[in-house]
Design a binder for these strands. Structure first.
Lengths: 132, 132
DNA sequence: TCACTGTTTATATCGTGTATAAACAGTAAA
DNA sequence: TTTACTGTTTATACACGATATAAACAGTGA
């Protein structure tokens, strides 16, 4: 009899990957929410269940959830569980847009420091974005 | 009598700023080299001199120099000092270009996860890059 | 020899992330 | 009320990286 899990929600995380364990959890959940697989009102896994699934400590999950609550994407209710907030989708998207803007700015700065002129930076951006 | 320093080379760094102290040193020096203020063959400050200027430990400077040498941007000679390598400028620019590409890719991914379509991502990139 | 380089070693401190464990507290259904 | 879930809090601990201090070592050139 293999462990049956209704759904893993988010795949495995690893201490070796980029970012700390709790940051990886935050990122995965933000993506689930921004891309609509977790809708406002949906119940997130309990601390203990997610910790067991991801093979991490309860503290690590708690910290990830705290971060998401701080951003207004989820909310927690003692005795009930943790849920995607009504504005969760919008806030998650907005957070990602802000991150994207910040990364674009940093990329442009690096390119400028490499000696590229404005037109060349725009061209580089085009290339990279479309090469996907 | 105030301390006279021929030139600070790079401004103050801080544990509070983004990245570790040694990473900040690496970044500043890379920029000095990629932007041509430090040319191939130029002598970098000694471990002890830079540590004193930046109010950090010798180990921190050593680590930064090791990182730059690993990237082929500078080289060290016991008894002589540390110097910008002949290909230092090119390698520094190339490193920055690679960083820029990586950041553009990450930015595009975040924007996509926020629900933006390709055309919208390109438009966002344009806006942000030109708003400088 | 002297005065500067970089090199190495050893020890220590600090903060962060993570883990373990236990107890506490709120909710809802049997 | 009991049971079985939730989240909450507390205390202790460990690992690791970054940083610091200090001292000695080793190469170079005036």
């Amino acid at each position: 009899m293999s462990h049956d899990r209704k759904s893993l929600l988010i795949g495995p995380i690893s201490p070796a990957a980029e970012g700390t364990l709790y940051q990886q959890i935050v990122d995965r959940l933000k993506r689930e929410i921004s891309e609509g697989r977790l809708k406002p009102g949906a119940t997130l896994p309990s601390f203990r269940a997610l910790a067991e699934d991801l093979l991490v400590s309860l503290i690590t999950v708690k910290r990830a959830y705290e971060e998401l609550e701080r951003e207004g994407i989820i909310f927690r209710r003692q005795g009930l569980g943790t849920f995607v907030s009504e504005q969760g989708h919008d806030r998650s998207c907005e957070a990602k847009l802000n991150t994207a803007r910040k990364l674009f700015r940093e990329a442009a700065r690096e390119a400028a420091e490499a000696g590229l002129k404005l037109a060349e930076i725009l061209e580089l951006a085009h290339q990279v974005i479309k090469e996907k």
